[in-house]
Every structure is written in structure tokens, then in C-alpha cells.
Design a protein around this nucleic acid. Structure first.
Lengths: 252, 252
DNA sequence: CATCTTAGTTTGTCCGACAATCGGACCAAT
DNA sequence: ATTGGTCCGATTGTCGGACAAACTAAGATG
């Protein structure tokens, strides 16, 4: 953070493809290009920037990868907003590569989830509630299938965050939440009391959200998260060990 | 979340340049390619994947943009971990494009900062403490310069997070924290009591962290964050308005 | 041994080309 | 009129080759 500022700016013209990307990015951030707008064709861009189409293509790849542009129907390029899911995936990936430990993830989730639950109690809509109750019923029916139960738990917490109607919160916890999948599975598999405790907590949280009782929702979420930490240690897993690498299928 | 799965998958083999990126990405995530490893040259990759160099280049751009590879000395491509800073920038950018409101950002930061303060009290090293104290002194000397004070405040909170030694927490709050810069400036400029209150809080937080008093650190941070929210409303800004777009100089 | 020179590598950029595919227009059949 | 088929142009994905600039490493020189 306390970096000595580089005194002399890069000054390097930077590769053309990168400058092209930055130029378009600037247009987007300045609002002159709005999400949904179609970008010119590759040849048109090449002409406009006085570059070769090959170079333009490389620049477009950068835009594409950062989520600021995407092909609408496989064809024409259009300005887009980076999707929450794609971003979450990138962040998760980065956390894994940095060998982030369970402790770090847990501390973060322990800060976010209770807040999400509380705000969900305040801001939830009827649709949110229905989705939560549906997830609850599915979880009750899947207590024996640990794989499915883990997936449903991940989904449950995502639903709570969505009910809070806070995209910053959703994004922050999505990235961390995804990485819990394997840990959840591990605990639920080895600890036979875990499934029941999980359901009790989920039920209480949904009820609190239904009654718009923010404090109660927060309290139960805290308990639920603490419980998970206890379970994690109880089955002999080390909180200081890096969370393993997971191979999830590509969505986006 | 409750998406109806699309029955028929895209089925498309995806463009070659994208598959190349995914292939290398998979190698990295599987640990067969470790950060720091040098990747083959473009021609070598082209040969290995039976593709043209142009196509390989496009794939490399994707890797580069996702932070999984970077040019070490302007030259050879090497595997890298996505930098916290670059990732934070992307997330910030996405939040802006989604027109996230001050309320959403504040709720998120209000969940993260107190946790960061508490963990900082537990995990801080001597170096962390020194950095915090240094920032405090600089802030005390800059009460009149609102621009500088805002920057120092952003840095202060980043330092607290760093002292917590939790990279997930650091990353999560970095993305949100950056966007506060303009809001901070606005409040400090228009509210002449703000600077003094800010300093009081920072001082108390640093002292608590020094004494390793997690509860006290958390309490003061909560107060500090609440205070900011109050100030924001007091100067007549609307918490439900989207946080504006900011033009920060490119680091990365 | 240190330094300079030189040749080979590698990247950034350009040019030109072609197949596949998408969009749309135009036409035929129910 | 709606549906289905065909054709044509536009656009993208991929390829091959080319060259200057920048870097690397080896060899030559003091």
C-alpha cells in the first residue's frame, strides 16, 4: 500500500493492442459507451485506430476477458457489464492460487453472512422468501445425499445474499462462498450430526427473514457459521491449511 | 440462482484461442504450472497446439488479462498469480458499471471493516503497527488538505486490513474501499467537524490494535463507519444514488 | 576479467487470404 | 399470411508469411 510512487510514469507507449483496450475501456467508464451498445466491426476499428485487424483482435480479447464486452449472438461485439458470476470465479481462482487458508475464508464469510442475513430480513421480497423456502424443502429432502446437500447449502447462502438486494455484498461473498463447497462436503460427510444442525439453522434463518426480524436472522447466521467452524475442526481438518483447488464446471 | 438449466448445452466447441487459454488455465489450476514458471514461446505454443501464432497470441491475451500470466521483463511470458490490486480494480469497475449505490457499498464495508479491525488487533505485527502509526501522523499533519486526508484515510483502512493478515478480507474490502475515495472527499470537504472525528477514531483504533484489544478495535471501527454514514447524509448526499464513476490513474 | 560486438530469439505489428457462419433479402409452397 | 428454402454480403475465426525493434547470449577484444 505504501508504495513509493514511480516518480516517472511509464511513458512507454505500451503495446498498441493494450492501448486500444484502454481507449475503449475509458469510453465505457466515461459513459459514452453504455452496456448493450454495439461496438464497430473489427475492420472498422482497425480503420479508426489505424491498426491492423490482427492487432485490433488482440485488443478485443482483453476487453472480452475483462467482461466489458461480449459477443451477443456469437456475432457482433457489444458492451457489457462484467457478470457477477464470472467475476466471482476469477476472484475465487485468485484466492486459490494465493493458497488462502480456511481461516482466512472463514473470517471473511463470518463477517459477511450475518450482515447479509440481517439485511435480507429487511429487504427481502416475496419472491426471495419463496426461493429460500423452496431451497429449505429441497435440503430437507436431501439430508442423505451429501453432495447435493452441500450444493444446496452453497445455494442457500447465495439466496440469502440475494434477498439482501446488495450487489456488492453478493459479489464479495460469492467469491468466497464458492470455495467452501469442498469444505462443506467434507464436514457433512464425516459428521453425521452436521446435516441436522444445518437444517435447524437454515429453518430458523428463513423464519427470521420471513418475520423481518433482522437481529434474529443475524444471530442464527452467526451461530450457523460458528457451528461450521467447529465442525471443520472436529473432523480433524486444519484451519490453517490452504483451501484445495476445486474444479468447477464453467458457467458464464 | 434458481435458474432453469438450459436443457441443451451450447454444444459449441468454442473458438480455438479460448480453448487454448482454458487449457493453460487448467494446467495452472491443477498445479502442474506454478507461478513463476516460464511459458513456452509463442511459436513453441503454436507448434504444440497445432495452431497459428496469431491464434496463440489471442489466447495469450486472455491469460494475460485474467492475471494468470504476465511478461516478466517485458519479454518472456511467465505464470503469475492475479494481483490483489488488479483484481480489486476490476471488481470496483464492475460495481460502478452496475450502478451500485452508496448504501450497498456502505453495508458491505460496515460488515468487513470491524472484522478487519478486530483481527488486526490479534494478528498485527510490529511492522503493521508502525505503518499504522505513521499513517496516523501523516493524517494529523494533513487535516487541512482534504484531498490528501481522503487518500490517507483510504490507505489507513487498507493498512488495518493488511494487519489482519487475511488476504480474502483484504481483497474484498479493497474493491469496495477504493470506491469510497470520492465520497470521503465529499464529506470531509463539506463537513468541517469530520476531519477531527476521523482522527479521533483512527487514533483509538490504532491504540486498540497496539494493545491487542480486539473488542475495542471493533467497537471504534463500527463507530467510525457509522459516523461516516451519518456525515454522508448530513451533507445532503443520497445514500440510494449510484456511486459515481471515478477516474483513477492506472497502476497495475 | 571486464567490456564491446554480433548473431540469434522473441515479440509486436502488419499484410493478405479463405472457410464458416450469421443476417437479411428474396422467392416458393402450404 | 405464415412457413420454409435459397442466395448473397458481411463478419469472424484461422491461417500463412513477413519484418523491425528489443532482448539474450555467445564470441571477440581490450
Amino acid at each position: 500500500m505504501s508504495e513509493t510512487k514511480p516518480l516517472f510514469q511509464p511513458l512507454e507507449p505500451a503495446p498498441a493492442y493494450k492501448r486500444l483496450c484502454q481507449a475503449i475501456e475509458a469510453e465505457i467508464m466515461a459513459g459514452r459507451l453504455k452496456p448493450g451498445d454495439q461496438l464497430p466491426t473489427e475492420t472498422a476499428l482497425a480503420e479508426a485506430f489505424a491498426l491492423n485487424r490482427s492487432t485490433v483482435r488482440e485488443g478485443i480479447r482483453l476487453l472480452e476477458q475483462s467482461g466489458l464486452a461480449e459477443r451477443v449472438a456469437g456475432r457482433r461485439l457489444a458492451v457489457a457489464r462484467p457478470s457477477t458470476k464470472a467475476l466471482g470465479r476469477r476472484v475465487s481462482q485468485a484466492l486459490v492460487l494465493h493458497d488462502v487458508t480456511f481461516r482466512e475464508l472463514w473470517q471473511t464469510i463470518a463477517a459477511l453472512e450475518p450482515a447479509a442475513a440481517a439485511y435480507a430480513a429487511e429487504a427481502r421480497t416475496e419472491a426471495d422468501l419463496l426461493a429460500l423456502q423452496r431451497n429449505l424443502r429441497q435440503s430437507e429432502a436431501a439430508t442423505s445425499n451429501t453432495q447435493q446437500l452441500s450444493a444446496l447449502d452453497v445455494a442457500f447462502h447465495a439466496l440469502v445474499a440475494e434477498a439482501a438486494h446488495n450487489r456488492a455484498l453478493i459479489l464479495a461473498r460469492e467469491a468466497v462462498g464458492q470455495l467452501f463447497y469442498p469444505a462443506f462436503a467434507a464436514v457433512v460427510t464425516r459428521l453425521d450430526t452436521a446435516a441436522a444442525r444445518l437444517l435447524t439453522a437454515h429453518r430458523a434463518i428463513v423464519e427470521a427473514i420471513e418475520r423481518r426480524d433482522a437481529d434474529e436472522a443475524r444471530r442464527w447466521m452467526v451461530r450457523h457459521i460458528d457451528d461450521f467452524h467447529r465442525g471443520y475442526c472436529m473432523v480433524g481438518l486444519d484451519p490453517e491449511a490452504p483451501i484445495g483447488r476445486v474444479q468447477e464446471e464453467d458457467s458464464q
